[in-house]
Design a protein around this nucleic acid. Structure first.
Lengths: 346, 346
DNA sequence: GTGATCGTTTGCATCGATGCAAGGCCCGGC
DNA sequence: GCCGGGCCTTGCATCGATGCAAACGATCAC
């Protein structure tokens, strides 16, 4: 059984190919009888659109690309899930690409490596794209997720990193913590901003400088969180009374390291993270975390893409430079055991 | 700057479009000078293939589709990552679809809903496809991942579920456990097989029937694992001395429930799972698990797809019925704290 | 009754690449 | 010197759908 094309349907229904196309695409000026007749043939023959052909002709494919560093990182997996769900509601299919945090790959994407197949690109970049690439305006719809671009020249959707970090640290301070370690500074812009949020909260709480400590890591992974805290515990500095991890993966690693060293959480050290990945509710003890609303992020990102598509859209032309909207999405603090210091009866 | 097409490159290089195509696709009979000249124009103009156009003409798109129930489930996220990596090595792009475990969606996929855009489909189905669909031979390359299809009529790659479950339970028995709960039976074929592996191991160890217990769940999630164990602990039956969870998500939920109830692991109850998700190394205590080799699964699945592509391939014709290879991939038991019963000094 | 308007349907060209097979060229063999 | 064959290169048709605009008949206003 070969493929069923519009031509086959047209013959079967006794109308022209164009009319079939009109029915399929929901063109309004089709008589009810014709529509019904065509619909019957459509069903009977089991017609399915060839998206490639349509994409070639119309310039729209119905795909968007989502590029994340590592799909296996829970945060990105959950983000991808939210994007796929939101896209599904709009009849859009998502092409997921894993950049492995390779800036070369990210550059290729920014350079348009996916534009033929995707109507737009959602990029969740780890490394900040090189400035020379960043300087150009891409000739296709692009929205950054979470990470700011150089000079903020691309639209971006995500939580306010500074505020999110500040919220977490303020909470730790409220629990009575003073010597709070910020875990996770690295080369990324997000790392810089979360560091700044930490500093703002520490300053606002008038915590003495001697108690400030920012610990660098390479990646925001469980391994790195584990290793960094392990090292911290083995050092001869005074123990912290809280760890603020820049994301939950780091926090999970930190929890494991503390557990392995017999340090009690939250009695000895409180812990908080950012992302509120599903895993966070199942750690020992359950992890306090700042929860971004992934559904909102996905929805807003798609809306911004569509806005751009409307302009540069089908013609595949570079439209007027898109205002680089920086959209901050809501987040909330989810308090769990890992930071219930006083209530833990210290 | 509009798109650069082959025609533009051809004009720039002073050759025909066909010759450009020959250079791009690596056709061998092109003179070195011509090749160099075309290559220069290619680079200079920044040509990028339009995969849609090629796909339309040649019938091959360079995409494969990967359908998993939930991308946010760690196992599937890690599997997807492995598939994307393996596909990348072959120059193939992966289209990830989330079926949400909806058998209707899975049926649509089996029915060919993705064939236009994808050269082949990797389906990791949760629900067993309805028999009427399963009875047909699909007219496109398809490989099942992990889950058996009805009657095994599709090629399938994955671990031997019975053996994997048996291995885990045998290990628990070796640790001295007898009253071992199997956690996770549900409607799935995988659930059935893992139950069977459990039963085989229990029988082989001559464990008295009174100690056998299979606990059903709806999904293999942390939530369900938590709820099921919670209920078990609140019941009036004798406590188990081990929990064998059908996957790690369930195990994580079980660990949390045990922790919350003050049951010590592994001193009071040993726990083991299947999948060896990254999270497993960071639970409290670290989780013993059966680790499938995802890279092998991904590689073999792609190889099987390519075999089928070779036959039904470009012509989009239904080839000879493909032998429904059932390929069992290697796995190994990773022993961690959660099951080190004796060594824990009970 | 006639021309304008609207709703419905159609034919043709086209998107950008590749399949196919022919055509030109150069070489060596007889 | 002519012919066969291999190596390069090319032109044309084509994949399956949609953009465009014309054609058609029916309805409407004057």
């Amino acid at each position: 059984m070969a493929r069923v094309r519009m031509r086959d349907v047209a013959e079967h229904a006794g109308v022209s190919v164009r009319t079939v196309s009109n029915v399929v695409s929901g063109y309004p000026h089709v008589s009810p009888e014709t529509r019904a007749k065509v619909q019957r043939s459509l069903d009977e023959l089991g017609y399915r659109m060839d998206y490639l052909a349509r994409g070639l002709r119309s310039g729209r494919t119905g795909f968007i690309a989502l590029a994340v560093p590592f799909l296996a990182e829970p945060y990105f997996a959950e983000l991808a899930q939210a994007v796929i769900r939101a896209a599904g509601r709009r009849g859009i299919t998502v092409l997921v690409e894993a950049t492995a945090g390779d800036s070369e790959v990210e550059r290729r994407i920014l350079d348009g490596g996916l534009t033929n197949v995707a109507d737009g690109v959602l990029l969740s970049a780890l490394t900040v794209p090189a400035a020379d690439v960043g300087a150009r305006t891409p000739d296709f719809p692009l929205v950054m997720l979470g990470e700011h671009s150089v000079g903020n020249q691309f639209p971006r959707v995500g939580i306010d990193n500074v505020a999110a970090a500040r919220t977490a640290v303020e909470h730790l301070v409220e629990q009575g913590c003073r010597r709070i370690v910020a875990l996770g500074r690295n080369g990324s812009e997000n790392g810089r901003q979360r560091t700044e949020g930490y500093q703002q909260a520490m300053a606002a709480a008038r915590v003495r400088r001697v108690n400030w400590l920012v610990v660098p890591v390479e990646d925001w992974t469980r391994e790195q969180g584990y290793a960094a805290v392990r090292e911290l515990l083995e050092g001869d500095g005074p123990l912290p009374d809280a760890v603020f991890a820049f994301n939950d993966a780091l926090a999970v690693g930190a929890l494991r390291a503390l557990d392995a060293s017999g340090v009690r959480v939250p009695e000895d050290v409180a812990v908080a993270g950012i992302d509120d990945i599903q895993e966070a509710a199942y750690t020992h003890p359950p992890l306090t975390s700042v929860a971004p609303d992934l559904d909102v992020i996905a929805e807003r990102a798609l809306a911004l893409l569509e806005e751009q598509t409307g302009r540069s859209g089908a013609a595949r032309e570079a439209g007027a430079p898109v205002a680089a909207v920086q959209e901050a999405t809501p987040f909330r603090l989810v308090v769990r055991e890992s930071s219930r210091w006083r209530s833990a009866g210290r």
